[in-house]
Design a protein around this nucleic acid. Structure first.
Lengths: 146, 146
DNA sequence: CCTTGACTTAAAGTGAACTTTAACAAATAA
DNA sequence: TTATTTGTTAAAGTTCACTTTAAGTCAAGG
């Protein structure tokens, strides 16, 4: 199947302006043209899925372009591409860990506001209760007197 | 304990310029001054920890300021603050889920390059092997002929 | 007394990732 | 035939979150 830019936009969730921007930045090599108009194939849409993955996990556009360029150079660049993917995979693992840490901070805040709302006031909260009730240590937090 | 801006910077990991910027943006209300010079207390450092948590989980500066402002208005704003924290907590859960999805895409790529490097070429890869070897379905990916 | 170093401000500059604008081309519907 | 729709480009504009710069204040040390 082939698609126009607006169809590709719908399929990928990226606005046409962004697709054109990615194309200009070299993230979409070998997009076909018919009378000057971009023609997207399924393979292009799958590439855009990968771009979205890399972008949404924090890879800068320039590095994505490097990866894409390496890909079109063939088997000689397998090792280099592998290093990029491995690094990004580790980066995602680190991000998840970081988010899980922040989640604990927000879990505490959630508990805190539940308590405060039940009591009608923040001043009524006994922070020792957090550990008693959840088994987790209260994180550092403003609103504390330590 | 009290700290200068450079000590606060060291403790929080934020550069002094960023701390001044946050102060200007209203994220650090009630910072004391001594002869015009900022004096940070432990409570301020803990607040900065919370700011970092909110910022690093994707909350825009303006929304963080709203939250901070609500906090200094006292118990009347408990419900509103709770909503903000609850929404952010859910946002973090969604982010983790999203990252875990992207991780699977990268896991596939990792497998793919391992295979390709072992064989010396991408063309030698049989994508059906991914499910056979890992029990996971190969995600959509460029480099595939489907 | 003077220099050094750490602080202050307002304002301008930066980099990333788009988005918008303006002007134009080609195909299609009325 | 004309109007509308959908595409094209280069270039300028936007937003966010800082960072840098320039000019100044102030306390401590030599």
């Amino acid at each position: 199947m082939s698609y126009t830019i607006s169809e590709a936009a719908e399929k990928t969730g990226l606005p046409p302006s962004t697709i054109r921007y990615y194309d200009k930045e070299g993230l979409l090599p070998n997009i076909k043209r018919k009378n000057g108009i971009r023609v997207f194939e399924d393979m292009d849409l799958r590439l855009m899925g990968l771009l979205t993955c890399l972008k949404n996990t924090g890879m800068p556009i320039k590095r994505i372009r490097d990866y894409v360029e390496l890909t079109s150079k063939g088997d000689d660049t397998l090792q280099e591409r592998y290093e990029i993917i491995k690094a990004q995979r580790q980066f995602v693992l680190d991000q998840i860990e970081q988010l899980q840490y922040y989640l604990e901070e927000l879990d505490f805040k959630d508990w805190y506001y539940n308590k405060a709302l039940a009591a009608g006031s923040e001043s009524a909260i006994n922070l020792d209760d957090y550990e008693k009730e959840t088994g987790k240590k209260a994180p550092d937090d403003p609103n504390r007197e330590n």
